[in-house]
Design a protein around this nucleic acid. Structure first.
Lengths: 259, 259
DNA sequence: TAGGATGACTACCGGCCAGTATGATCCTAT
DNA sequence: ATAGGATCATACTGGCCGGTAGTCATCCTA
């Protein structure tokens, strides 16, 4: 049952590995030479794990599955990773690291806090929509050892407090409508996290477009701007919203799409 | 004669009340008398399952766990429920039913759509914060048979479209700021769904209070009211070039591997 | 008071799967 | 050309857990 690595270019799927159309490419499948760095393979293992977790869920994915996706066997996976739990952890870190980076980066920006927040949330959305989004969002502490669970919790908390701080600063500098920072952060992060539940790569919208759409909702709110709720039809209250795909977002650094 | 009062276990779609606080009580533990109705016990099983799923996750909960929580044995559980999957399904239905009910109820209200939406979302929040919230939110299709997965998906879709419709109506009657109904519904539902991830019963806030806080955020939006509608806040600090956010790493971030 | 219906337990099976023992094969350096 | 390390496969174990068979206990009704 176990397919040896003897499977050469078969069924055309593994040609010369064009970037990747369906699943992440396997460095093993390519060739036999060992010149590939260990780290490259290790990352391939993690990426394959993320891909499998994404599609089948953590508990429904066996290490044999992950190994098979790379055309190797289970011991090979264990050669690069100590156990299944660690795989999940690494996927989580890979995703969350993007958000932490974004938080660090906006610190130096000299724009109103709402714009900094906006930039962070845009990166946030892209991280959640990335291949590691599922792992980042769905990890349950019960699946992890106490140590790793604590580690993850602290990273999550760091992000949460970073967002709260931006909100607080925004309220202070007047760029954000007065609100409760904690609840607002929960609401924002929640809706972004949820993207991981429905977004699929072949979606019509890119992650950046989704982020833009969400930011429009967050920024404007449901209650109409301007005239207080008198009978006014759908007016184009603010420029750029509506059917227009994407307004020129001024000078805010557009989040460079990962990968 | 013919006291066959109970249909096949499948048919009895019991509407389980969210009920009491603390952990669910066991009808068995209470006493030995058999006068308790079968349906009562069946609901107790489901509620115990929800409680266990909540705390340990679906896959980390064995049917022995659920049985033990009720001071019975596994075959007893199987006497009331056909399999584990069905338990999860029933928990989902119990939670989602509240939202569907809310959607039906507001249909008759003659208030602006934004207020109807608000009412629905308030119920939504409470359902998600209920004991069945976890199941409602975390069910993964991969854990369910094709039939049940489809069933759940249709119920979710029904709710989604109900919310979208309210948003659309609100935009039309002018009570909601013009927006994309689909994306807005995603954003709203997402942040509410996420409540299930962090809310615990002994929290300082009740579910209703959380709902109110969220609605305040949704209604007002981040951008200050009365402020210029261009993309930026009132204050305009000099946009000094700090460090530009750099591209997200192509390589996996190095993981601080524990252990 | 027999007999069916209901409710629950003991004891087990079988499959899946994480993780491992062992060793073959290749690469590199000396 | 050979030692030693790096890489990976075959084959196995051991435990957990969903699910079932068979059986007993109790209650209700006639």
């Amino acid at each position: 049952m176990r397919t040896r690595r003897t499977r050469a270019p078969e069924a055309g799927r593994s040609r010369i590995q064009p970037a990747l159309n369906g699943r992440p490419a396997s460095p093993w499948r390519a060739s036999r030479e060992r010149l590939l760095d260990r780290e490259v393979k290790r990352e391939a293992v993690i990426r394959a794990a993320a891909h499998a977790f994404n599609h089948k869920g953590y508990h429904n994915t066996s290490l044999d599955d992950i190994a098979a996706a790379l055309d190797v066997t289970k011991p090979t996976v264990y050669y690069y990773v100590s156990n299944k739990e660690q795989l999940l952890f690494e996927c989580f870190v890979a995703g969350v690291e993007q958000i932490r980076a974004a938080l660090r980066q906006v610190k130096s920006l000299r724009v109103p806090a709402r714009e900094r927040l906006s930039a962070v949330l845009r990166n946030y959305a892209q991280a959640v929509a990335s291949e590691f989004g599922w792992c980042m969002v769905r990890v349950e502490d019960q699946d992890l050892s106490a140590a790793m669970s604590a580690h993850i919790k602290s990273m999550k908390s760091e992000i949460d407090h970073g967002i709260r701080r931006l909100i607080r600063e925004g309220v202070q500098d007047g760029s954000i409508h007065p609100c409760d920072p904690k609840m607002t952060a929960f609401a924002l992060a929640g809706s972004l996290n949820w993207i991981a539940h429905w977004y699929r790569e072949n979606q019509s919208m890119t992650a950046a477009e989704i982020a833009d759409a969400f930011m429009a909702v967050f920024d404007n709110g449901l209650r109409p701007r301007g005239a207080p709720a008198a009978g006014n039809g759908p007016r184009r209250a603010t420029a750029g919203r509506g059917a227009r795909p994407r307004a020129a977002r001024a000078r805010l650094p557009q989040a460079p799409v990962a990968r």
